[in-house]
């Protein structure tokens, strides 16, 4: 204990990291600060954010509200969803409204504008084509011809039973070639997708 107390502190300049690296014998020692717990700790000791301290203009007691970044609570109803007679609608006012939402990039590269350009006769034509020759008139081809999405084709008509049977056999043939890894990965992906809806 006594020796610890009487031992002189190493001078500041003698620390290996501050010595110029011209001396080759020191290069071995420069790595030492990484393994030193105390020095690593010292480097991690960051000055607290300015919002935590007492501001220079305000000297009396104050509440510091600095919540960690987290997903917003679902119990906090958005202002748009509040009924018209709710007090919170006026209490929040424009303070919650951040005006920069227009500048944010969209998730999808192209935003498809719905056109509603097909009339009932076109839809009859789609149904007729799909039932008459389902092998040539697939969903994609019909969508290309009528300038709509394949989703819309699926919404207005259904494939014939023979085409469904063929498609089922094709799918089985493809899936029979899958090994365990691919099958499990696909099942896991499906399970993960289902967990999005449960918010897990």
């Amino acid at each position: 204990m006594a020796t610890c107390l009487t031992a002189p502190k190493r001078p500041f300049l003698a620390l290996p990291s501050f010595v110029p690296s011209s001396c080759p014998s020191i290069t071995l020692q420069t790595r030492r600060h990484q393994s030193s717990y105390r020095r690593t700790k010292q480097r991690l000791r960051v000055k607290p954010d300015a919002s935590f301290g007492v501001s220079s203009t305000q000297f009396h007691d104050q509440i510091i509200h600095n919540p960690p970044s987290s997903a917003p609570s679902v119990y906090h109803t958005p202002t748009k969803f509040l009924p018209l007679d709710d007090v919170r609608r006026t209490l929040r006012g424009a303070s919650m409204n951040n005006g920069n939402s227009a500048q944010l990039p969209s998730v999808f590269k192209t935003s498809v504008e719905k056109r509603y350009h097909l009339n009932p006769s076109d839809i009859e034509e789609i149904r007729r084509l799909r039932l008459s020759d389902p092998m040539t008139w697939s969903r994609w081809k019909l969508a290309k011809r009528f300038d709509c999405s394949p989703m819309f084709i699926a919404m207005v008509c259904e494939a014939g039973p023979q085409k469904k049977e063929i498609q089922k056999q094709v799918l089985e043939a493809v899936q029979s070639r899958w090994g365990t890894k691919r099958r499990m990965a696909r099942e896991d992906r499906q399970l993960r997708k289902e967990s999005w809806g449960r918010d897990e």
């Binding site: 679902v74 119990y75 109803t77 509040l82 009924p83 709710d86 999005w196 809806g197 918010d199």
Partner: peptide, 17 residues
């Protein structure tokens, strides 16, 4: 998808004062 779930929950979990 998660954002849509959060929005729907915001709608459904409205509680009056």
């Amino acid at each position: 998808s998660r954002a849509a779930v959060a929005a729907l929950k915001g709608w459904y979990l409205y509680s009056p004062l």
